[in-house]
Design a protein around this nucleic acid. Structure first.
Lengths: 158, 158
DNA sequence: GTCTTTCCGGACCGACTGGGTCCTGATTGA
DNA sequence: TCAATCAGGACCCAGTCGGTCCGGAAAGAC
């Protein structure tokens, strides 16, 4: 299917949201419930996504009261490939890439052994060339996307 | 995960196999059992793959006794994107691409609406730039890959 | 020192889909 | 007429993904 997991989709949305809030209220952490409200993604799922992103050092987490998440790099320095790798693991179209022929029981017969690497590398390159800043929809102002968004932002900016 | 389905993997193997046999014995059809033996892919699965490929006009099928399958284009004119589309349907990383926002219940909030098209197009371009001839492993002679391969080929060449 | 808030880690479940099998019918050549 | 082969559908099983829940740990507030 060559389909991306929904988690990755959510991760991009959440990261862009973090980036926009950071632009309005810099150095302000965002909690997962807040990010859930701001993106429409269910809260436990946001938490799961954020955990993966924190593991990949794309966001930093702060525990305790008034804790939350914050971007570690600007959106212009985060590529789509970074996000995919953080959430779904290394990009591997088939089981045969990166030399690990484990699980391939026909490797002795396989006529394309090792050649998926070619395709894999091509895709990886195109993904690494697109940053989240490229994907942000600049035309829609933040305040118009969510009801009570402005109130939420105002409280976050304090 | 950004993973390709196994069916697509098999399809590439089968197509390359068809291309190599065609080079040795041109204008000779291959049956699915024969292709199964030549690729190590289970026979019913080969049949399923071939059906999809025939539907996309990548191979032509001939019914009846001494029927079988044959390439409709040389490997140099079949791209990886062609195969993926034939087997798995149109390349669509997320549910949001190609404008069909069906199934996306947060489209009103979504900050990246329509922006996955960018990524999708990039991937599609890189896949359309790689042909099956690029993926063929030229260094391994056909006859060395399958036991009794030469016998099989000899009978096919009649 | 205690309490609240928030992150962390794991377990768990339902639904979907991909991979594989089987069967019946249609078509073609011997 | 018969045998060989493709065509198409129904079906099942297993793996994975998306989503939920729970208890525990850390950090700040009171």
């Amino acid at each position: 299917m060559l389909r991306l997991s929904k988690l990755t989709d959510y991760a991009v949305v959440v990261l862009i949201r973090l980036g926009e809030v950071d632009r309005v209220a810099p150095a302000c952490v965002q909690t997962s419930p807040g990010l859930s409200a701001g993106t429409g993604v269910p809260e436990p799922t946001v938490a799961k996504v954020l955990k993966a992103l924190a593991g990949a050092s794309l966001v930093s987490s702060q525990r305790g009261a008034r804790g939350g998440y914050r971007l570690m790099r600007p959106l212009t320095e985060i590529t789509v490939a970074d996000v995919i790798i953080a959430v779904d693991g290394p990009i591997a179209l088939t089981a045969c890439v990166d030399g690990s022929s484990v699980g391939c029981d026909v490797s002795s017969v396989c006529a394309v052994k090792g050649r998926w690497d070619l395709v894999n590398a091509a895709i990886q390159d195109s993904l690494a060339a697109i940053t989240l800043a490229d994907m942000r929809m600049a035309s829609v102002p933040l305040a118009f996307r969510v009801p009570a968004e402005s109130a939420l932002l105002a409280s976050a900016a304090e």
